[in-house]
Design a protein around this nucleic acid. Sequence first.
DNA 1: TCAGCTATTGACCAATCGGTCGATAAGCAA
DNA 2: TTGCTTATCGACCGATTGGTCAATAGCTGA
Lengths: 227, 227
Amino acid sequence: MKPAETENGGTVPARRRLAPAERTPQILAAALEEFAERGYAGASMAAAAARAGVTKGLIYHYFPGKADLFKAVVRSCVQPVFNEAERLIAAFEGPKAELLRGLIELAYDRVATERRERILFKLILAEADRFPELAAFYNAEVLSRALALVGGVLRAGAASGEFRPAAAEAAGLAPVLMAPAIMASIWQMMLGEGRSPNLAAMRKAHVDLVLQGLVQARAPGQGAPAA
Amino acid sequence: MKPAETENGGTVPARRRLAPAERTPQILAAALEEFAERGYAGASMAAAAARAGVTKGLIYHYFPGKADLFKAVVRSCVQPVFNEAERLIAAFEGPKAELLRGLIELAYDRVATERRERILFKLILAEADRFPELAAFYNAEVLSRALALVGGVLRAGAASGEFRPAAAEAAGLAPVLMAPAIMASIWQMMLGEGRSPNLAAMRKAHVDLVLQGLVQARAPGQGAPAA
DNA sequence: TCAGCTATTGACCAATCGGTCGATAAGCAA
DNA sequence: TTGCTTATCGACCGATTGGTCAATAGCTGA
């Protein structure tokens, strides 16, 4: 075990000393992989250290314990997700329906490419009851933020008359709109890309259903006569 | 630890001998709780045994090892889920839209009540890559079956002209229709009943969106332009 | 009543884990 | 070059785990 054969390709001399600002992200990345593969309880500190090319003792030099390392891993992963969506919404001008389509398609495309976020979601879900603060963190930093974004678009569209008035009740509708993309991600994770429901087909059906179901009929006054 | 104080309320004499047909489900139920609370790796055989009011050794008398116990737990839980839906579909006569609404509402109501199925889904998701056969089992026995049920309704509705023709492309649409109810279940599990998106609101918005998005406009010839 | 089958126990083992700590050496400042 | 700081190692510990097995005792049929 003299040459580090973990992920740095070469034959780095063992015991290279690095600045904490450089070693810490190495450890976090290695720990993410370890936690993702074995789950919280199954993950081994020694194995995580080995993935980072260091020894277990060093991890305890940077993190007080396993639980703290886990939380640090989660926190280090959630930041960049929303920037894209928020920029898209802020910069968009045009029909709200097109904005909504863009958001949905963005979500599916991220699912298709970004693997780390899928893994992270699984981790949070699996360990939520053992780390209540983690569930609270997910709720505040991820779910609520996403719901607010989608809800804002829905209400704007309803206010402008472009969407049916029911779209304004975003409390129920926003999660319904987001769910299929998230489930697509989960299925990909569980079943692999081969056996999961087809991503492109879901994306198309999803956009289609949402636009047909939300956009106000062009000829007003003949909507749902109901009973 | 003389009187068993686990879940049988009374002061049963220690070491009661039971027929395997009676003890096995006890062990399976106890193991489900243990796995659900601590995850696969975190669960302890001794703790699962204690929950069942027996000792670890007895579990190894009934199951070859931890992995086998886990698989047996999963298998023992998935059977009764589909009977209800299949009965509903078979017995139903009337507009396909009403059948679809009934299925969606059934799904949400199960989410609200059945706790074991939520737990089970979480377990399968969390341990899918460690037990590939488990993912395959979920795919074959749960997801595919559910997709086939929903897809059948969609195609029937499209064939009868009640749904828009796009409904026939069930490969993408069926998972999109099922996803919100499943996500509702997952959110309930992660965040508790308090902080999750409101179940009743989601149910209403979901039904509303689906029916508006799928049902063929009543006046023909002016719905989808471009034949 | 009694003998036999087997459900059930409890003690045991090797392996592994999270965590601790003194020793070591890599880098930097002087 | 020298010396100090501290990143890094590796050996170690107590606790717990999955798994084994011989001994025991509850039930049932004769």
